[in-house]
Amino acid sequence: MNQAVSPSIVLSGAGVSIESGDPRSPAPKRILSPLSLTLAERRIAVIGANGSGKSTLLRLLNGLVLPTSGTVHVHGRNTRDEGTAVRSMVGFVFTDPLSQLVMPTPLEDVELSLRRMKLGKARRREAAMAVLAGYGLEHLAASSIYELSGGERQLTALATVLAVEPSVLVLDEPSTLLDLRNTKLLMERLAALPQQVIMSTHDLTLAATFERVLVVDDGHIAFDGAPGDAISHYRKLVG
């Protein structure tokens, strides 16, 4: 990767709270308690219950959510001041690829990603085809995204994100809508990536294959460490 500055992601006292929206109890609601973390491992999984703050934690990493206290730095860049630069370094894959794929066909969607590179129309199309071919999706280039299977959609979403060569890839429960076979396919693709991968999941078998696992519970990091210990901690937590 070109940005070889380490450590890649540093959270210092980063927390998120929101206005309650209720005029009678105006105290802000805490979504994520301030936390300090250095995320340098190549494969990091985040597990925790629905609503535990996993998604917010992941969205902090590319500036989609800004910390209301503390800071988040990616390769030395503050997500608050250099949001656009951070988002070009941190690719984000969502649970539902249909909300992520903007254009009617995979080819056009990858072209849209490549728009920032200021290529000509023909060169951009060529580059987009090359990206799709790189992920074995060239036969789907002109299909409607509505005609693709769930797995194909998620792989396409992954390709459109990777097209701009981010150095970090963040995935928010990417396998939740996939069947077993497509999950396996997606994980094989992810394993082969040179990028740093940070992924949230409910699939503990998947989490077990990562180097480091964070357990998020009620806006806190309840455990941080090796997958085996993290998973048994999580099981105890759920009771």
């Binding site: 656009t84 630069a85 070009s88 969502f94 909300s99 992520q100 990603s113 920032r116 459109t160 701009v164």
Partner: peptide, 27 residues
Amino acid sequence: AYARSTGEALAARGLGEPAIKTVERAY
């Protein structure tokens, strides 16, 4: 809900925001 998740995904990809020049500077 769909519009919001699409808007979020656009933002995550750095698309649709007015300040495209910032990106070039950042590169």
